[in-house]
Each structure stands twice: as structure tokens, then as C-alpha cells.
């Protein structure tokens, strides 16, 4: 589907960039004039996906995180968060609520929260090749 508008960002996998990424995503999404709740859902989902890339994808390194956003016809927003990190061996397991490899301080709710905030969550990953999370959300009409 041809995008009506797009943006791309690349930033190093440093935790301080989590707030930068979700704020940048919100500013781009604001062009569609979403509701406060839609904006909050987008920020939360982007925060989860970017945190996964930083905490899991680049567990022992600081690689690049790619954030791509596209406005598809019919006010549909598509967000891609990609890393070239370690990849996920078992995607189904990773998506299970409360499952985490992140240690005691991680709740294991990242994908569950993304799913509750977005209409669609797709995950593509290859061990050693990185992970791409694609999030889609319909923004309500005005």
C-alpha cells in the first residue's frame, strides 16, 4: 500500500532515547489529529517496542534502532521498529504475557501492552539477524 506520508529515524540503542523515540512518534502521529487516547496508546506501544530493541536486541552492544512510520490510506498508521541485534529464537514464547528474559525488573508485558494499544502487532525475527516489530493502528476520523 502506498504511503501518504513517511518518516524514518535512526538512533543508538541507549535507554535515554526511549523517551525521544515515543515523543518523535507522537509528533509525527499528531499530523493526523488523533484523540488523546490514541496518542497515548501509540506512545506506549512505541516505548515498549523500542525498549525491547534496546534491552533484548542489543543486550550487550549499542547498535542502531530504526523507527519508521507511514500514514497509509484511510488514516491507518504503520510503525516499524527494527534492530539488527540478537533476534528472538521463539517468537510465540516471547509474546506470552509475563514471559521475560530480562531479569527481575522486567514485567514481561511488552508485547501484551503493544497488543492492547494497537490493532495489529507483527514480529519478524531471525536469531543473529535482528527483529522487526510492525505495529498498525487506525486513527479515528474527524
Amino acid at each position: 500500500m502506498k504511503a501518504e506520508n513517511e518518516m524514518r529515524l535512526v538512533f543508538p540503542a541507549k535507554s535515554i532515547n526511549e523517551s525521544f523515540a515515543r515523543t518523535a512518534a507522537a509528533v509525527f502521529a499528531a499530523l493526523l489529529d488523533p484523540t488523546v487516547e490514541e496518542l497515548s496508546d501509540l506512545k506506549t506501544a512505541v516505548s515498549e517496542a523500542v525498549t525491547n530493541a534496546i534491552v533484548h536486541g542489543y543486550r550487550d552492544t549499542v547498535g542502531d534502532v530504526f523507527l519508521q512510520m507511514a500514514v497509509l490510506p484511510g488514516r491507518r498508521l504503520r510503525i516499524r521498529v527494527r534492530d539488527k541485534g540478537v533476534g528472538i529464537a521463539d517468537i510465540a514464547k516471547a509474546r506470552e504475557p509475563l514471559f521475560t528474559t530480562g531479569g527481575e525488573e522486567r514485567a514481561g508485558l511488552g508485547f501484551a501492552v503493544m497488543e492492547s494499544c494497537m490493532d495489529r502487532v507483527r514480529v519478524r525475527s531471525r536469531v543473529g539477524g535482528g527483529t522487526t516489530v510492525t505495529l498498525e493502528k487506525q486513527i479515528s476520523g474527524k
Binding site: 516505548s47 515498549e48 527481575e104 522486567r106 508485558l109
Partner: peptide
């Protein structure tokens, strides 16, 4: 003003 699942991890810990 904003919280993702890290807030849950903080409480659990």
C-alpha cells in the same frame, strides 16, 4: 504522566 510496562517491573521489583 506516562508509564509503560517498565512501571509494572518497578512495582514488582
Amino acid at each position: 504522566t506516562f508509564m509503560d510496562s517498565s512501571g509494572v517491573g518497578l512495582v514488582m521489583g
